[in-house]
């Protein structure tokens, strides 16, 4: 464990808590893409299949359970909670995320560390996480204005991946055998997807204006 990875995991955890807080406190999920949340739930379930078989550390196990439960709780809230689901921007959240699922699974079958069920699902979860934010970014573009909690959520998600890139650089130099190419390359692509959002987020912060993404 290094400081970059710990910072990344904490940022990721905070991003999920910010989202849960927004939904719970405002009883609204406007501006949040249900499709992105469903993709994240799939990412965690597919990645943590080893939750009960491989014990790595107490921290690792706890965080996996927290991520799985929180992502499922968010999807449940947006789908089933009778008050929250009314504020879901169904007509704006139209990204065809099924294509992302099929493509990522196809790539995972071809490019993986070892052709086993667990490794294919792990690679699938890595690729899917890289593109999971797309429905959310499209929804933000469409809805124009970004309320600050949703903006902070996306910003923190980008920050978590940026910290992980520092973690891979650190591990590359520290460990003699670096074999995290699948995570590192996929993580780079993921962070690049946030770049434009970061740019507009920084502009709005600098001009102290409301965050407006160009339509």
């Amino acid at each position: 464990m290094n400081i970059f990875r710990l910072a990344g995991d904490m940022t990721h955890l905070i991003s999920v808590l910010v989202l849960l807080l927004k939904i719970y406190a405002t009883k609204s999920c406007s501006g949040i893409s249900l499709k992105t949340q469903e993709l994240y739930a799939m990412v965690f379930v597919a990645r943590y299949l080893d939750l009960f078989t491989d014990y790595i550390s107490f921290y690792n196990t706890v965080m996996k359970i927290v991520f799985i439960l929180s992502s499922l709780a968010i999807v449940w809230c947006m789908r089933m909670h009778r008050v929250v689901k009314r504020s879901y921007d169904k007509e704006l959240d139209t990204f065809r995320h099924n294509i992302l699922i099929v493509v990522c699974f196809g790539v995972a079958v071809i490019i993986n560390e070892k052709f086993t069920l667990r490794e294919v699902f792990w690679a699938f979860s890595i690729y899917l996480e890289a593109v999971a934010i797309l429905p959310q970014l499209v929804l933000l573009q469409r809805s124009g204005n970004v309320d600050n909690l949703t903006g902070q959520y996306v910003f923190l998600l980008g920050g978590y991946r940026a910290f992980y890139i520092l973690n891979w650089i650190y591990r590359y130099f520290v460990e003699q055998r670096f074999s995290r190419w699948i995570s590192a390359i996929s993580g780079l692509i993921q962070t690049a997807l946030y770049a434009d959002f970061f740019y507009y987020y920084f502009l709005s912060w600098k001009n102290n204006a409301k965050l407006h993404l160009p339509a």
Binding site: D54, S57, N60, K114, W122, R177
Partner: peptide
């Protein structure tokens, strides 16, 4: 091939 190292990252 050697066993892929366990994925210790979240």
């Amino acid at each position: 091939s050697e066993q892929p190292q366990s994925h210790d990252e979240l």
